[in-house]
């Protein structure tokens, strides 16, 4: 009698293994792609499906160098949008990003990028000081500053949000999203960076993404932004 739960579990396991052959279940191991596919058609019908990738950018990093999308080729990235004098959710986001950094900091295939949405105040040296005090180090984690319009548009492209708002605490309204993108710059997940449980899930999803073949899924094309940089 006592063995029956165990027996049930074993049977269930066998059953589920037996059913694991369908295409859908194989796919279930992969993270979804965010955004809309772009169907490239010729006169005979659909020739190819392309997927939008994150736009190119050039921004100044807290290290004193500049960082571009080319530095992220072949790496998975987690991005957030914050500012150093933010009195509300940013310290929580930074604390969660720090957890991720502590976990993946030595992995050369992982890069964290924190974009300042208050680039006028958050100069390279302010960001360098913030990074040092937080315990963040390049090349695992970059703090970025530069053209504010570009950064706001990037926030939008990453499925996050940022805008100037004199009524918001600290002068900016923004989202606490952490965005996960794969080696081809395709968004694969957006998580609430103020919620430790969501970040637990993000960390598991990062492991899954690292285990994925780099050429998995539809081919990526970066969708540009209309900003002179």
């Amino acid at each position: 009698m006592n063995l029956s739960p165990l027996l049930m579990a074993v049977l269930l396991l066998i059953w589920s293994c037996g059913n694991g052959n369908s295409k859908a279940q194989k796919e279930a191991g992969h993270l979804p792609f965010f955004g809309e596919p772009m169907l490239i058609q010729n006169d005979r019908g659909i020739a190819d499906t392309l997927w939008p990738a994150l736009p190119p950018f050039t921004l100044a990093s807290h290290t004193g160098d500049s960082l571009t999308q080319l530095d992220l080729v072949g790496k998975i990235r987690v991005a957030d949008f914050f500012f150093t004098s933010c009195p509300t959710i940013c310290p929580m986001m930074s604390a969660q990003m720090l957890r991720i950094h502590e976990r993946f900091g030595s992995n050369k295939e992982v890069v964290l990028i924190s974009h300042s949405i208050d680039p006028e105040h958050d100069s390279v040296s302010v960001l360098a000081d913030y990074a040092e005090k937080l315990g963040a180090s390049a090349p695992g984690w970059f703090f970025l500053t530069g053209n504010m319009d570009l950064i706001f548009s990037l926030a939008d492209a990453y499925g996050s949000f940022a805008e100037k708002d004199p009524n918001a605490p600290g002068g900016f309204a923004h989202s606490g999203a952490l965005t996960l993108a794969d080696r081809q710059g395709r968004i694969r997940g957006v998580y609430d960076g103020t919620n430790p449980e969501e970040v637990d899930r993000l960390i598991l999803d990062m492991e899954r993404l690292l285990a994925e073949a780099p050429d998995y899924g539809p081919e990526a094309v970066p969708v540009g932004l209309d900003y002179a940089q």
Binding site: T88, I89, M92, S94, L98, Y130, K133, L134
Partner: peptide, 16 residues
């Protein structure tokens, strides 16, 4: 307070 000092009151690095 939790947003800055943390749920467990541990603060944040050398910032808080």
């Amino acid at each position: 307070c939790m947003n800055c000092h943390g749920k467990d009151g541990k603060g944040l690095g050398k910032l808080i």
